[in-house]
Design a protein around this nucleic acid. Sequence first.
DNA 1: CAGTGGTCTAGACCACGTA
DNA 2: ACGTGGTCTAGACCACTGT
Lengths: 247, 247
Amino acid sequence: MTAATQIDRGSGVPLYLQIKRILADEIVAVGADAGAMTEQLLTERFRVSRATVRQALQELVKDGLVYRERSKGTFPVQRMDIDRPATLQVGGLVGYLADLGMNPSSEVRDVHRAVPPREVVDALMLDVGETVLTFHRRVFANGQPLSLALVRLRSPEEFLPTAAELEAAGSAIELLEQAYGVRVARSEHRVWATSASSEEAAALALEAGAPVLVLETVMRTREGRPVVWRRIADHADIIKHTFIADL
Amino acid sequence: MTAATQIDRGSGVPLYLQIKRILADEIVAVGADAGAMTEQLLTERFRVSRATVRQALQELVKDGLVYRERSKGTFPVQRMDIDRPATLQVGGLVGYLADLGMNPSSEVRDVHRAVPPREVVDALMLDVGETVLTFHRRVFANGQPLSLALVRLRSPEEFLPTAAELEAAGSAIELLEQAYGVRVARSEHRVWATSASSEEAAALALEAGAPVLVLETVMRTREGRPVVWRRIADHADIIKHTFIADL
DNA sequence: CAGTGGTCTAGACCACGTA
DNA sequence: ACGTGGTCTAGACCACTGT
């Protein structure tokens, strides 16, 4: 299968997306065709208006594939990593470990609905007495426990999946999205190191006081409504989280 | 001083930025004026073309202040945190601690140029034998050491500031930007917990084996060229890093 | 049906960097 | 002087949502 090099005006796909796709393919395949990306050339090549070309280029800038310089031109970004690593995928740990051939498994426990502690009530802006879906999840690789998560999920009172359903879904957010159409658009993470509590130590097969990484996350819909509070304790040295920040 | 409510066509400031500013102020001040943000109304209010209004709204979406829904409208994002916290500012730790009244100070040592280890050579895509500016920085709050950073900065061979200059600048990247116009546009972070090495323990006044947070960062220009490799070891429990991810 | 945002066109003037 | 991207205008048609 070969990549398209022309746009199809009857396909229903927006022209700027087709152009973006074509240019993105050319950038990753051919590499730096510096100077071949001017708005002038692209309007002639694709026979579209300049605004459409600009919209396509703007998308490429947003995706970090090109940068633009006034009076100079549009140039591909030089990168060593062609396909980006695990950019903190939500609930993607199991799949990530599977890619590494580490034979991962997941264990969900203590699924119930409850009124959470004050800290979580504030973070999720819950009403008084409102319950959230609560459960623990442990992730194992090659039989060794790596990660212990405590999840608090704002959801309708009747939302109470079984542990088996949660394990199968790989991510409680996926279940919630399928059931109610709730989509996470933004997440805020706080991360620090600490000593394992006795509970965490037991769950991760560590000695009490051993180093663990704690990652506390609040996920929000695009409306800004917080829907998930999550606290993860990770085995030191083994689990590493990756973030990418555009400034 | 009151916020502007009209645009000034002679100010030289792009109209869409003026509109963005006005709308952003109104959103944070008044809050949810849902339904007052349609493109139709805004074109009439500011007497600009629809494309200009769209550009302003697009900026607000990018900044996470509003979201747009086809056939429905443009709505402000609900948020509890009006002004965002320290979103992992580069080198912003000292200023952040100062805001908290923690009497921070910074100590820079071992400033020299050297060929770094293989790992850093790869990350910064250095030429064979190319040297980088190398130094350690410790940050203290109320006299207590909180953070130990090892910085490797790709720079011209003649770039060799003094420790005093680096301390005054608060950030080596600022110095590099002032000297050579190099700007960081993107950074990749990997974070994990580990046990303090003897060197780290000594620098942070911890016992060997105590938990520390390690944050390894590569910063790049918008061209994609990596310019800084940095490894930070942070005192557990005290230092917390915040990341925000838009999906 | 009217109103919304999404897409697209064909122009225009400008500031800025390079030659 | 010329080409670049940045900004702006005044139209157009569309898909979709709600009434």
